[in-house]
Structure formats: structure tokens, C-alpha cells
Amino acid sequence: MGDAGAVQHVLDRLEDGGHGPGTVSDAIQLSWRRSADAGLPPDHVAVPFDPDVDNESRLRWAAAPALSTVSADLSDVPVALLLSDGSGHLVERWAGSIRTSDQMDGIGAAPGYLCREELVGTNSIGLSLLTAAPTVVLGHEHYADNLTGVSCASSAVIHPATGKLLGVINATCPADAYHPFLPALVGRVVAETRQRLLDDGPVPSPALRAAFVTARRRAKGPLAAVSANTMFFNTAAGPILTAPGDRALLWEWAERAIHQHDGRLQAVVTFSSGPRTTYCEPVYEGMVLAGALVRLGPATASTASGSLQTDFGWSKLTDSERSIAAQVARGLTNRETAALLFISPHTVDYHLRQIFRTLGVQSRVELARIVERNR
């Protein structure tokens, strides 16, 4: 069955079930085409299995309490809650009954199975991994015939400090039992998981905290203190440092600048809220770099010009380069990006060097900011 034949098979099945193509979103239809391009036969997709599951990850630790609580509340409802890591590998499942567990086993919705789109076709876990956004796939919207018996809702878990996509929370139920409350339920679990990750953050260096407290007393503008794993800031800096990834971006720049120069440093840094002239000075605990004090200046004409220049560079990227940039910006490694796009890691390496050169960036975090601004 060729690519066109595979998509036609799905369309015919849709029509036979009383659903016209107009009832399915463009995002779902694009997913069907990607699934067909991956060579997946829609009449039956075998879900791959890898028994090497990471049950000790921070994601599993953070998500398990909320998943267990919600699952207990749904003990009389035929819904299974699933947790996948950032590669679509199912880590654990919570189901309220043996009957629900048996149905999930029959479709490969159990620990060890892999749910990336290029492996099993259209599904909400795969779509959330691609988009880092909440997704719903109803029974008839699945690419594979053997998955049409269930509907599912998923949402990505983004680390609140680093902005990295850690995995996906999913709720799956029989197609005829789907209810619009499922996405909200998944959203609740994701919110509690992120809060648990945030509450368990590392204790900042005493020297960094002391330096921040002293500087804050005389600061007249936005001020932050940042390290590899913590960040705190005054009220004026709050509206500027609005995204989880801003901490990683700020520390990556400050650490590189401190190691390359001495004394107080200045550069234009593009945050999620826009580019600003930024100043930093190192804070040491003994002989060890504990972090940096950062002062944020106003956006100036020169920084706006720099932002426009970067955006112009984005327009010069090819479609392939933009696709690679989008995956790298999600936190995927070069090897993971290669597997997702069906190209070699060497090709990703080559294109990534070209992308960095065209955009004038030096890190993946800076690249992520540009991708976000040009969505």
C-alpha cells in the first residue's frame, strides 16, 4: 500500500463510519500524511515494545502522586492514565479496573510500549511530543485501524525551570466513553506535576542569595540572581523573565561570558519578552562560581535592530533547517531529531551548524527563543 493509498484507506474508513473529512482538523490530516510517509500500514500498526523503562526518573517521581489520586477518583470509569517520557516511551499506567487494563494491553497502552507518531501513527501522545501542547485524538481520528476503539487526551510536561519537554500525561478511554472533561483532567495532573518539580528545586547558594539581597536594597531597576539550577528576581524583573526557559538562557549567557572575560559584562540577550541590554557580574563561594547577579536594562533601538536582524536570518532558513530548528528547540538531541525526521544524525549536525551561522546564535537556548518568536 503506497503513501496515497494509505491515506485513502483512512479516508474511506472515516466515510464508512459516517464521518466526513470536514469533521477532522487539518492537524490530524497532516499527521495521517506523516504517518503514511513513514511507511506505516493503517490496516494494522504493531506498537513497538522496549522493556527497559526508567521508573526512577524525576518525571515519574513528580507525576505519580497526582496520577495515583486521579486514578483512584476514576475507579468506576473506564479510563487509563498513562505517563510517557520525552521519547514517547510509556513509563507507567494507572487503571481503575482489570477490564480497563486488559483493553489497554490489547492496543499497546502499557509500560514499555513506544507511542511516537512515526512508530504508531496518529495518537495524542505523539502529537503532544511534536507540538508540546495539549492534544485530543478521538477514536476515528487515529491513523491505525487497531487504535480506533479508543479516544485519548494528552498534554506535555514542561520543566518549570529549564523549559525542557520531559514527557507526556495521557488519558485513554473507549471511544464511546470519551467525555470533554478528560483534557481538563490531564491539565490538572500536569499542573500538579510541574508544581511538585518547582517545589523540589535545589537550595540556592548562600553566597548568591546574600549577594542578591544586598544588591536588591540599592537596585533601581530589574535585578536577578541566577545559577545552573536556581533563579530569583525583584518585582521589576518579573514581567521580563516570563518564560521557564529564560533562566536557562540567562545562565548559559552569564556563565559563558564570565569564563571568557573578567569583571562586569554586558551584552544584548533576547528573552521571551524581547531583547534587552543585560549586565552580569560573577558571585563566588570561595573559589567556586556560585552564580551571577544580572541587571536588565531597557530595550534600546540597537537591541530592536538586532532582533530584526535575527528574524531576517530566520526567513533565510530552508524548510528543512526550520524543521530541524523546531525539534532542537523542543529539547531533542541531534540523534532524537534525526530519528523523528528520518534523516541521519550527521545531516542534523551539518544543518545545525548552518542554522547557528545564519542566525548568529551560539547555543540551543538562544535558538529556542528565536523559534518561539517566529512561530
Rank of each mutant, 00 (worst) to 15 (best):
Y178S: 03
L114Y: 00
L166R: 10
H19R: 12
D50P: 08
C280K: 01
V268L: 03
F181T: 14
E366N: 02
S97N: 06
S155T: 07
T310D: 08
V7G: 11
F212N: 10
E255I: 04
P239K: 10
M287K: 13
A4G: 03
F49I: 02
V269D: 06
I355V: 15
V189F: 00
L241K: 06
L293Y: 06
R58M: 10
V348G: 05
R247K: 13
A325N: 06
H351C: 08
P160Q: 03
A292K: 10
S363G: 10
P48K: 05
R264A: 12
E255R: 14
A228D: 15
R276H: 15
D26T: 14
I125S: 12
L296E: 07
Q103S: 13
A64E: 15
A133N: 09
R33Q: 15
R218G: 12
A6N: 08
Q8G: 04
M231P: 04
S31T: 05
T358N: 02
A267T: 15
S227F: 00
A304E: 13
T131R: 13
A224Q: 04
L198C: 07
A236W: 04
R93F: 00
R364T: 15
D37W: 07
R295A: 14
V150F: 13
R33E: 13
T242Y: 00
S307A: 15
A66E: 11
Y143R: 04
L83A: 09
D200K: 11
I98W: 07
N229D: 14
P206A: 05
A153T: 01
A325Q: 05
P42K: 08
S57P: 09
L114E: 14
R218L: 01
L67S: 05
S25F: 02
Q327S: 11
A304G: 13
V328I: 15
S227Y: 07
V137F: 04
D262L: 10
L74V: 02
A304T: 14
E118Q: 14
P204E: 09
W251V: 04
